[in-house]
Protein backbone atom coordinates (compact mmCIF):
# COMPACT_ATOMS: atom_id res chain seq x y z
CA UNK A 1 0.00 0.00 0.00
CA UNK A 2 2.68 2.48 1.03
CA UNK A 3 4.76 1.77 -2.05
CA UNK A 4 1.82 2.39 -4.40
CA UNK A 5 1.12 5.75 -2.85
CA UNK A 6 4.77 6.72 -3.08
CA UNK A 7 4.91 6.07 -6.81
CA UNK A 8 1.64 7.91 -7.36
CA UNK A 9 2.70 11.27 -6.06
CA UNK A 10 6.46 10.89 -6.33
CA UNK A 11 7.65 12.06 -2.93
CA UNK A 12 5.85 13.14 0.18
CA UNK A 13 2.54 11.65 1.20
CA UNK A 14 -0.56 12.67 -0.76
CA UNK A 15 -2.66 13.81 2.16
CA UNK A 16 -0.08 16.40 3.23
CA UNK A 17 -0.36 18.31 -0.07
CA UNK A 18 -2.93 20.98 -0.97
CA UNK A 19 -5.76 19.82 -3.19
CA UNK A 20 -4.71 21.85 -6.24
CA UNK A 21 -1.24 20.36 -6.28
CA UNK A 22 -2.68 16.90 -5.89
CA UNK A 23 -4.97 17.44 -8.88
CA UNK A 24 -2.04 18.68 -10.96
CA UNK A 25 0.00 15.66 -9.88
CA UNK A 26 -2.78 13.28 -10.88
CA UNK A 27 -3.31 15.07 -14.19
CA UNK A 28 0.40 14.89 -14.95
CA UNK A 29 0.46 11.22 -14.17
CA UNK A 30 -2.66 10.52 -16.19
CA UNK A 31 -1.62 12.80 -19.04
CA UNK A 32 -0.68 10.04 -21.50
CA UNK A 33 -4.28 8.82 -21.29
CA UNK A 34 -6.14 12.05 -20.60
CA UNK A 35 -4.34 14.24 -23.17
CA UNK A 36 -5.27 12.25 -26.30
CA UNK A 37 -8.87 11.94 -25.15
CA UNK A 38 -9.11 15.66 -24.52
CA UNK A 39 -7.53 16.17 -27.95
CA UNK A 40 -10.29 14.08 -29.52
CA UNK A 41 -12.90 16.19 -27.75
CA UNK A 42 -11.20 19.37 -28.98
CA UNK A 43 -11.11 17.99 -32.51
CA UNK A 44 -14.81 17.15 -32.46
CA UNK A 45 -15.83 20.56 -31.06
CA UNK A 46 -13.75 22.46 -33.60
CA UNK A 47 -14.92 20.21 -36.43
CA UNK A 48 -18.57 20.63 -35.44
CA UNK A 49 -18.31 24.42 -35.26
CA UNK A 50 -16.54 24.73 -38.61
CA UNK A 51 -18.74 22.28 -40.50
CA UNK A 52 -21.90 23.98 -39.23
CA UNK A 53 -20.49 27.46 -39.88
CA UNK A 54 -19.48 26.50 -43.42
CA UNK A 55 -22.69 24.66 -44.21
CA UNK A 56 -24.86 27.61 -43.12
CA UNK A 57 -22.97 29.95 -45.46
CA UNK A 58 -22.46 27.73 -48.46
CA UNK A 59 -26.05 28.06 -49.70
CA UNK A 60 -25.76 31.78 -50.38
CA UNK A 61 -22.24 32.77 -51.36
CA UNK A 62 -23.27 36.26 -52.46
CA UNK A 63 -24.65 36.83 -48.95
CA UNK A 64 -21.43 35.43 -47.50
CA UNK A 65 -19.51 38.00 -49.54
CA UNK A 66 -21.73 40.80 -48.24
CA UNK A 67 -21.06 39.60 -44.69
CA UNK A 68 -17.30 39.72 -45.37
CA UNK A 69 -17.64 43.20 -46.86
CA UNK A 70 -19.60 44.35 -43.83
CA UNK A 71 -16.29 44.33 -41.95
CA UNK A 72 -15.20 47.10 -44.32
CA UNK A 73 -11.56 45.99 -44.41
CA UNK A 74 -10.98 44.55 -47.88
CA UNK A 75 -11.77 46.01 -51.30
CA UNK A 76 -15.27 44.90 -52.35
CA UNK A 77 -14.07 42.35 -54.90
CA UNK A 78 -11.66 40.76 -52.44
CA UNK A 79 -14.43 40.62 -49.83
CA UNK A 80 -16.55 38.72 -52.35
CA UNK A 81 -13.65 36.34 -52.93
CA UNK A 82 -13.31 35.68 -49.19
CA UNK A 83 -17.05 35.21 -48.92
CA UNK A 84 -17.02 32.57 -51.66
CA UNK A 85 -13.88 30.72 -50.59
CA UNK A 86 -14.23 30.70 -46.81
CA UNK A 87 -17.33 28.47 -46.36
CA UNK A 88 -15.79 25.67 -48.43
CA UNK A 89 -12.47 25.93 -46.62
CA UNK A 90 -14.28 25.84 -43.28
CA UNK A 91 -16.05 22.64 -44.25
CA UNK A 92 -12.80 21.03 -45.43
CA UNK A 93 -10.93 22.04 -42.25
CA UNK A 94 -13.86 20.69 -40.24
CA UNK A 95 -13.87 17.36 -42.06
CA UNK A 96 -10.09 16.97 -41.69
CA UNK A 97 -10.38 17.63 -37.96
CA UNK A 98 -13.30 15.24 -37.68
CA UNK A 99 -11.29 12.37 -39.17
CA UNK A 100 -8.08 13.52 -37.51
CA UNK A 101 -5.82 13.74 -40.54
CA UNK A 102 -2.69 15.90 -40.29
CA UNK A 103 -4.10 17.18 -37.03
CA UNK A 104 -1.21 19.49 -36.16
CA UNK A 105 -1.15 21.32 -39.48
CA UNK A 106 -4.95 21.53 -39.82
CA UNK A 107 -5.28 22.81 -36.23
CA UNK A 108 -2.61 25.38 -37.05
CA UNK A 109 -4.57 26.55 -40.10
CA UNK A 110 -7.74 26.60 -38.01
CA UNK A 111 -5.97 28.66 -35.34
CA UNK A 112 -4.77 31.17 -37.93
CA UNK A 113 -8.35 31.52 -39.15
CA UNK A 114 -9.53 32.24 -35.62
CA UNK A 115 -6.83 34.89 -35.24
CA UNK A 116 -8.12 36.53 -38.42
CA UNK A 117 -11.73 36.31 -37.20
CA UNK A 118 -10.89 37.77 -33.78
CA UNK A 119 -8.90 40.61 -35.36
CA UNK A 120 -11.69 41.37 -37.82
CA UNK A 121 -14.36 41.46 -35.09
CA UNK A 122 -12.15 43.55 -32.80
CA UNK A 123 -11.50 46.16 -35.50
CA UNK A 124 -15.24 46.36 -36.29
CA UNK A 125 -15.91 46.90 -32.58
CA UNK A 126 -13.13 49.47 -32.22
CA UNK A 127 -14.34 51.43 -35.25
CA UNK A 128 -17.90 51.48 -33.99
CA UNK A 129 -19.39 49.46 -36.84
CA UNK A 130 -22.61 47.73 -35.88
CA UNK A 131 -22.45 44.36 -37.60
CA UNK A 132 -23.09 40.73 -36.87
CA UNK A 133 -19.94 38.61 -37.24
CA UNK A 134 -21.67 36.53 -39.91
CA UNK A 135 -19.91 33.51 -38.45
CA UNK A 136 -22.94 31.30 -38.97
CA UNK A 137 -24.53 32.92 -42.01
CA UNK A 138 -26.57 36.11 -41.91
CA UNK A 139 -24.12 38.85 -40.91
CA UNK A 140 -24.16 42.42 -42.11
CA UNK A 141 -25.47 45.41 -40.27
CA UNK A 142 -27.52 45.09 -37.10
CA UNK A 143 -28.99 47.60 -34.68
CA UNK A 144 -26.34 48.99 -32.29
CA UNK A 145 -27.97 47.21 -29.33
CA UNK A 146 -27.86 43.88 -31.19
CA UNK A 147 -24.08 43.70 -31.59
CA UNK A 148 -22.43 40.89 -29.64
CA UNK A 149 -18.75 41.65 -30.13
CA UNK A 150 -17.63 40.61 -26.64
CA UNK A 151 -19.29 37.20 -26.72
CA UNK A 152 -18.15 36.59 -30.30
CA UNK A 153 -14.56 37.35 -29.37
CA UNK A 154 -14.83 35.28 -26.17
CA UNK A 155 -16.16 32.28 -28.10
CA UNK A 156 -13.51 32.55 -30.80
CA UNK A 157 -10.79 32.90 -28.18
CA UNK A 158 -11.89 29.68 -26.45
CA UNK A 159 -11.93 27.88 -29.80
CA UNK A 160 -8.53 29.33 -30.61
CA UNK A 161 -7.33 27.82 -27.32
CA UNK A 162 -8.49 24.39 -28.50
CA UNK A 163 -6.58 24.78 -31.78
CA UNK A 164 -3.47 25.76 -29.81
CA UNK A 165 -3.86 22.65 -27.66
CA UNK A 166 -3.99 20.46 -30.77
CA UNK A 167 -0.93 22.12 -32.28
CA UNK A 168 1.02 21.30 -29.10
CA UNK A 169 -0.53 17.86 -28.54
CA UNK A 170 -1.64 16.59 -31.94
CA UNK A 171 -1.88 12.93 -30.85
CA UNK A 172 -5.53 12.10 -30.27
CA UNK A 173 -7.66 9.02 -29.95
CA UNK A 174 -9.73 7.80 -32.90
CA UNK A 175 -7.79 9.72 -35.50
CA UNK A 176 -6.62 8.79 -38.99
CA UNK A 177 -3.17 9.95 -37.90
CA UNK A 178 -3.11 7.20 -35.28
CA UNK A 179 -4.42 4.61 -37.76
CA UNK A 180 -1.72 5.47 -40.27
CA UNK A 181 0.95 5.34 -37.59
CA UNK A 182 0.05 1.77 -36.66
CA UNK A 183 -0.05 0.26 -33.19
CA UNK A 184 3.71 0.09 -32.42
CA UNK A 185 4.23 3.81 -33.01
CA UNK A 186 1.34 4.75 -30.78
CA UNK A 187 2.85 3.13 -27.71
Amino acid sequence: METVRATNVAGDTASARPLGKRIIAVLRQRWPVFGPWFGTLARLILAGVFIVAGALKVGDLAESGRAANAYDVLPIELGRFVGAVLPFMEIMVGVLLLVGLATRVVAFVNGLMYLVFITAIAQAWARGLTIDCGCFGEGGQVAPEDTRYASEIFRDTLLFGLTAFLVVFPRTRYSLDACLAGPEENE
Binding site: V58, L61, A62, G65, R80, F81, G83, A84, V85, L86, P87, F88, M89, I91, M92, V93, L96, L101, A102, R104, V105, V106, V109, D177, L180
Partner: peptide, 20 residues
Amino acid sequence: TALGAVVAIAVAGAAGWLVY
Protein backbone atom coordinates in the same frame (compact mmCIF):
# COMPACT_ATOMS: atom_id res chain seq x y z
CA THR B 1 -0.35 14.02 -44.88
CA ALA B 2 0.33 17.65 -43.96
CA LEU B 3 0.89 18.53 -47.60
CA GLY B 4 -2.24 16.62 -48.58
CA ALA B 5 -4.32 18.42 -45.97
CA VAL B 6 -3.11 21.87 -47.03
CA VAL B 7 -3.76 21.04 -50.70
CA ALA B 8 -7.24 19.74 -49.79
CA ILE B 9 -8.05 23.00 -47.98
CA ALA B 10 -6.78 25.05 -50.93
CA VAL B 11 -8.74 22.92 -53.41
CA ALA B 12 -11.89 23.40 -51.32
CA GLY B 13 -11.36 27.17 -51.48
CA ALA B 14 -10.86 27.01 -55.25
CA ALA B 15 -14.05 24.95 -55.57
CA GLY B 16 -15.88 27.67 -53.63
CA TRP B 17 -14.65 30.30 -56.04
CA LEU B 18 -15.72 28.21 -59.04
CA VAL B 19 -19.20 27.66 -57.57
CA TYR B 20 -19.53 31.38 -56.82
